[in-house]
Nucleic acid binder design. Structure first.
Lengths: 210, 210
DNA sequence: AATATATTTAACCACCCGGTTAACTCAACC
DNA sequence: GGTTGAGTTAACCGGGTGGTTAAATATATT
């Protein structure tokens, strides 16, 4: 038998190179040659390991998305008290984003190009539905309790969630746009990240206070 | 002299077709043939009016961006009192977004693919810098006054601005992602837009209150 | 009507890109 | 040492795409 479990090497090298090139250029504009070069292999190897550019892109997308979503949803599905839960979600997401800051932009763009296909793809890889209902149910319960205690105004979980996600992800996904429209250089953006880590949970809770 | 000011017809028809196709597919994945078909003209006409696909994409981008940014920055540069200013910005932006909901996603994606070129392009078309400094200065003044009056905690204008822009633009730019991750259908998203129009200004001011 | 210029078209081309093929290498196993 | 089969490569191919050209048509000016 030839090397069976050995040599994940080349395959992952290709996958990582593809990841870099796809994230850098977008799938449509990416050239298989560039991926091959960056992986240090021949173009035909891409076809050998993955059957086509499309399949390769699929693999990269699934891998990326399952890096970005689970942390956030996981933290939100936990049974921490509301403030600590928000803080956990913020910390988890900021950490994930600092590890791969261009991921949200990439996912956003690819999702826009072909929502249906990628949605199927992700659902096959991650039990999104299930996590989601858990998140909503637990969040709803906590909000109700806070409303009862007079510390929060009535608000649907979606509203809170979207406000949180927007402020967490958008500044990364749109860093170029912010630089262009608001003139924020890298340093200013790092400062903003720090602010979010320290203040965002409190900001949101105050915002939804009665 | 041949038709000089007449027949903006064909040119704008091409521009609008290009707009639709670019926004739908993204520039890299868009085919000139599809644009020509959608404009009801021959492919060569694209080259006649605009010199190349690239130039056409540039024109579309500039047009799009100068539809999306000025409203927001204009409202923010006005001399309304803080709360009314925020509300004006929110109304302006939501109106602009309802007219062309896919614009932010498009701009985001194109900006990601080639930030430097598109930044130059926009700066040549819109006096971004100038508007921006006005916005920041006026905002800083108002925040200082509110802090003095004990109605706001000290906060840099950028922080407030990014929080506002994130919550305004992200839900549109990432509508597919939100549908995927948070399960928000079109109706839920419309509801969220309504919430933002009614509540976002108050939400932000409460969030930054002492 | 004649002319000049602006539009518009059909047909064409050169190149790029994803994908394929067939041959070569090399380690494992008999 | 010969066989096997995964891993790897150079070379090639066909289709698609952006771009070009030259001819045809419309429109305004004289």
């Amino acid at each position: 038998m030839p090397p069976v479990t050995t040599d994940l090497d080349t395959e992952t090298r290709i996958l990582e190179a593809a990841h870099r090139v796809f994230v850098r250029r977008g799938v449509a504009a990416a050239r298989t040659q560039e991926i091959a070069d960056e992986a240090g292999v021949n173009k035909a190897l891409l076809h050998y390991y993955f059957r086509s550019k499309q399949k390769l892109a699929d693999a990269v997308f699934v891998q990326s998305a399952s890096r970005l979503f689970p942390q956030l949803l996981g933290a939100l599905a936990s049974d921490l008290p509301l403030r600590e839960k928000l803080q956990a979600a913020i910390d988890a997401e900021i950490d994930a984003l600092e590890a791969s800051p261009f991921l949200p932009g990439y996912i956003l763009c690819e999702l826009r190009a072909d929502p249906a296909r990628l949605s199927d793809l992700l659902h096959a890889a991650v039990p999104v539905e299930q996590i989601r209902t858990t998140v909503f149910a637990s969040l709803q319960r906590q909000i109700d309790a806070e409303v009862e205690a007079g510390r929060l105004r009535p608000v649907e979980p979606q509203v809170l969630l979207v406000s949180l996600i927007s402020q967490l992800i958008f500044p990364h996904a749109a860093s170029h746009m912010l630089q262009l429209a608001a003139g924020l250089d890298e340093d200013a953006q790092r400062q903003l990240t720090e602010w979010r880590r320290r203040e965002l949970a409190g900001f949101i809770l105050r915002g939804f206070a009665p």
